[in-house]
Design a protein around this nucleic acid. Structure first.
Ligand SMILES: [Mn+2]
Ligand SMILES: [Mn+2]
Ligand SMILES: [Zn+2]
Ligand SMILES: [Zn+2]
Lengths: 153, 153
DNA sequence: AATGCAAATGCAAGGCAGTTGCAAGTAGTG
DNA sequence: CACTACTTGCAACTGCCTTGCATTTGCATT
């Protein structure tokens, strides 16, 4: 066999979780793996529809629910409009810049407040186990169209 | 006049914002002021319906939108289910320690990352307008009962 | 390779939070 | 009190997501 079966790239992973390896599930895992930021169900749906595999939106949601229940992916809700976002569970700690203009998510390379948390730990009577930091603003593209904004430190 | 007009408690505030003082608007402001945590539109709706003033849910949403556009209140989205939450805008920038043991909220006096945001502003091609920081952990009381926990920097 | 069955999928309908058009009601102005 | 623009109730509607059901497919077993 010369041709590697693209559809089975995640077969072992899926079977290990006790679920079947299918064209759609492999495709969705691949898209999530390629993406550097969380995606909405609709983004996945549109990409898959335009790509090769015609898929139903309900299948996308069901697949994402299944993956989330197996902890293969992490589901969250966009802070500004509450839409559901899905990303591969890399078990890593990340932060993003969220553009309130176009909803673009831009990754921050490393945690800007990691050491701050460390020093804080020694100052307060509170056993810090984690944190969540979201930074809002306007991305490069949206900056120019933005005139009025309320400020917030 | 012995009876103070309850419905006009916020009349000046509302007129100052260029909008009319109505029974519903006063009632919603009052509920938000009494609450120590953000409320959903439905919570407001139910409380008002059961209280005195029969109100339509669309009026609740429209009122909240109006208030938010005047910056009288702050709209956010619940992290777990994405539902919209509304709270009075106290115009203070705050952060909290959230105890994952007992769900207690402990205020942090000043923003631990204010200056960090400033320096970040000059480093990246992104127009920062705000941020949200939540710190998780175990409070003084819950510390002692805490054995297993997943770590997160 | 053929069989059998549970799991996965497409399709269409439904559910729920939130929005909108429009007619009727009301606050504020004078 | 009258005028007008804003506000509200009502009902229909949208968008995101879920669910029921008939059909298809992965995969284990023959
Ligand atoms: Mn961090
Ligand atoms: Mn801050
Ligand atoms: Zn943008
Ligand atoms: Zn506690």
């Amino acid at each position: 066999m010369i041709l590697l079966d693209e559809n089975s790239k995640y077969k072992e992973l899926l079977n290990r979780e006790g679920i079947k390896s299918t064209r759609h599930r492999n495709a969705i895992l691949e898209l999530l793996e390629e993406s550097e930021f969380p995606l909405t169900a609709e983004q996945l749906f549109i990409t898959l529809r335009d790509k090769t595999a015609s898929i139903d939106l309900s299948t996308v949601y069901r697949t994402l629910d299944t993956f989330a229940s197996k902890n293969l992916i992490v589901k969250s809700n966009r802070a500004d409009d509450g839409k559901a976002l899905y990303e591969l569970n890399h078990n890593e700690h990340k932060h993003h810049l969220l553009c309130v203009g176009c909803h673009k998510l831009i990754s921050i390379d490393d945690c800007p407040i990691g050491e701050l948390m460390q020093t804080l730990k020694n100052k307060i009577d509170f056993d810090i186990t984690g944190h969540k930091l979201e930074i809002y603003g306007y991305c490069h593209d949206c900056k120019k169209y933005n005139h009025t904004l309320s400020s917030d430190t």
